[in-house]
């Protein structure tokens, strides 16, 4: 195999991992941008989405209905989570919210271990489209579906936030919660909606992830969750196109380091980039550097 073909294959591998990171990062950035909360349980919602869809698919349900119900299920979970765990703390310090989010993450992981046991389970993949052939390179259907879905969702979300009335409400809550309230915007509803969208996105990510790797376990969400968080910070947390860009860049760096430098060093380099980014450009690639108003 020639070096050029190999290089293109690695680029495609990078895009594939990148689109999964991007998809997860979208949910992170959405919730952070509006509610100013880093929802560490986000990775675990991915796991919940995967298990929900597994259970539904095992009943013999058509994949489209199973997917839709899983998204709704996760959205409902996100809604409840916000009302029960985060809303009472909205006036508390940022650190209490963060700790609650970590607690939420453990709660989800451990309750799913109780219900489904810690043993990994096979997932019946349902994306069986034909692979794409470009010369000597084959691109499997999982690759391009994940890519298309993440870019499509990014565009839809951007349009939603920029063009609709609900989106306008979200932007104003993000900018100044108090002022938004004075202008007659229902802040509680807006934040709930944000959580519903964010967790719904996580369900989509969970289902695509499971189709790609076909084994699911209660701890499957933690590592991709952390990587996606890095992607969101890299792209500029709070920015929707930033999350997707960050995801792709992260996936690409990881793959190219593994392929051409060393597999052992891949994670070291990824985290090093995160640190450098935070030192030199804390707002991320597409993030705006907003001064705190005094």
């Amino acid at each position: 195999m020639s070096g050029v073909v190999m290089f293109f294959m690695q680029i495609i591998n990078g895009l594939n991992i990148g689109s999964i990171y991007a998809l997860i990062a979208l949910g992170y950035t959405m919730v952070y941008g509006i509610a100013k909360l880093i929802n560490f349980a986000h990775g675990d919602i991915i796991m919940v989405g995967a298990y929900l869809s597994l259970v539904l698919l095992n009943t013999g349900m058509h994949w489209s209905i199973a997917t839709l119900l899983s998204i709704l299920g996760c959205a409902l979970l996100g809604f409840t989570m916000e009302k029960v765990a985060y809303k009472p703390l909205r006036k508390a310090s940022r650190i209490s919210l963060l700790i609650t989010a970590i607690g939420m993450s453990y709660l989800l992981q451990n309750s799913f271990q109780l219900i489904f046991s810690a043993n990994p389970k096979p997932y019946p993949a349902f994306i069986n489209l034909p692979s794409l052939k470009l010369g000597s390179i084959t691109i499997s259907s999982n690759y391009y579906t994940t890519f298309i879905v993440s870019v499509l969702l990014m565009i839809l979300l951007t349009l939603f936030v920029k063009k609709t009335k609900m989106g306008k409400a979200m932007r104003s809550v993000a900018e100044d919660e108090g002022a938004a309230r004075l202008m007659g915007i229902n802040v509680d509803h807006t934040i709930s909606l944000t959580f519903i969208i964010g967790t719904g996105l996580a369900a989509v990510a969970g289902i695509l992830y499971s189709n790609c790797y076909t084994i699911i376990s209660p701890t499957m969400g933690s590592l991709p969750g952390i990587k996606a968080f890095i992607a969101a910070v890299l792209g500029g947390i709070g920015s929707i196109p930033g999350a997707v860009l960050g995801g792709f860049i992260l996936g690409m760096i990881e793959t190219l380091v593994k392929a051409y430098i060393s597999s052992q060093l891949a994670d070291t380099i990824v985290f090093l980039i995160l640190i450098l980014m935070l030192v030199f450009k804390p707002a991320g690639i597409l993030g705006k550097n907003v001064r705190e108003k005094v």
Partner: peptide, 13 residues
């Protein structure tokens, strides 16, 4: 490293 699920880069190599 531990917890890897995507081995495609190494396998491509």
């Amino acid at each position: 490293p531990a917890d890897t699920v995507d081995f495609r880069t190494q396998l491509t190599k």
